[in-house]
Nucleic acid binder design. Structure first.
Lengths: 231, 231
DNA sequence: AGCCGAAGAATTGTATACAGTCAATTGGGG
DNA sequence: CCCCAATTGACTGTATACAATTCTTCGGCT
């Protein structure tokens, strides 16, 4: 007997739903405070509330949504303090990462990173802000992956996502381009095996990104869930 | 109108269940690989599978249990690599934490920490291994809390839990006592405002803990779930 | 007109029911 | 006697149904 469709991923359809919502949150298509009704989401994805609920629980644990008892799920609203703490934590981790990367980066890794940089530039040039912001974040996760500590990589990935939510990343194309330039400088420093310089650049880079964040702003009211999620 | 019983926590009854299982996992009452059947757990807690499932999803995201598609939930079995990465990550974070703590610890914080140390010693003397291991871990989280970065604290808490699972923490009373002594040395260094010494001590301490871990071992078969969870 | 209160609607919390998948066991054949 | 295949059993995956709570709206009172 065939099982060609080895049956769609089991618990991973839940992850697929979580991923869709997560992307919408991280890309600011769903603003902080937006209501995430279970039935509404269920209709959008064509599944029951059970599955939606499970996805929301996951996202709540990632601190991307806030579950309010008997009130419902809302996109999380990180405050200024949390934003500061997020970037502080990132600095701690990423300083070490870039230092190690400078010490051990292979030629292939650097070239792969440069390729990623190209993608960033392309997205910036094309004015695709969603893709641009995603790529700017993934740059950092990529370095973590290359360094090779899976645990640290997973943590950083979560931190980067939360950072994106915390900063109403309405980064101007100009500051995005600036970010990308700093990424390039980082690569150069690593190429020179300049660990100290790389660490300094990473510190400055994260400080710049943090400075550009404009917290708070629009309260997530009145919103078309379907439009925000349907990519 | 009264709402004296503000109604038992809403989504937090799920968290209560997760906590019970989590404690059992972290304290090694449930060995890595142990099957966590949904119906069995539901009967133990007197709830339906729905709630158990939600709790298991949370624990899976904390990497304490492994969800296998259509196969069920099992206590996670971190391998040697993951254990190394966990301690590596802890070193990165805790070095910074102890450094900052040495720079800014208040008298009250130090006294509170010394009080905790007393509890550790008491548990060790009493031969209460479960409490002992819990306290030894909480020492590190406590320092994080005192330093004040909530994000970093949460991450460290998770790392500590995972460390406990990864190491088949059958720490001998002797090495536990050793751990506690190193905690005391850390407090002393902070008291002297010796940041450099404190960092060194933390590094050594984590290295010692990591060295004491004996990975693998018994495969979690044949086990009385109820006995393991009912405290 | 404004505020308080109550009934109704909508949404969340939880359990149960059913369908699908995997593991085990039994029966037959080599 | 061993090995393979099909049926049976147990458990997970998902949806639906019901109960409880909250929000809303409408009516009445001050």
């Amino acid at each position: 007997m065939r099982k060609l469709p080895p049956h769609t991923s089991p618990t991973s359809s839940t992850e697929a739903i979580a991923a869709r919502i997560r992307d919408a949150v991280v890309e600011h298509r769903l603003p902080p405070g937006a209501k995430l009704g279970e039935v509404a989401l269920g209709e959008i994805f064509g599944v029951s509330r059970t599955k939606v609920r499970q996805a929301l629980i996951r996202l709540a644990q990632e601190k991307l949504v806030s579950l309010q008892p008997a009130r419902g799920a809302y996109v999380a609203k990180p405050d200024a303090r949390e934003a500061r703490e997020l970037f502080d934590t990132r600095r701690v981790i990423e300083r070490v990462l870039i230092e190690r990367f400078a010490a051990g980066a292979t030629r292939e890794q650097l070239s792969s990173l440069r390729q990623h940089l190209q993608c960033e530039r392309q997205a910036i040039a094309a004015g695709d802000t969603a893709l641009r912001n995603r790529l700017l974040g993934e740059f950092h996760v990529l370095i973590a992956q290359m360094v090779g500590n899976q645990v640290m990589t997973d943590m950083l990935r979560e931190l980067v996502r939360r950072s994106s939510l915390a900063t109403l990343l309405v980064q101007t194309p100009r500051s995005a381009s600036c970010s990308s330039d700093e990424h390039a400088s980082l690569i150069d420093a690593v190429l020179r095996r300049d660990a100290i310089g790389a660490v300094r650049l990473m510190d400055e880079h994260l400080a710049h990104v943090e400075r550009d964040l404009k917290l708070s702003g629009l309260d997530g009211e009145a919103l078309d869930l379907r439009a925000a999620i349907k990519v």
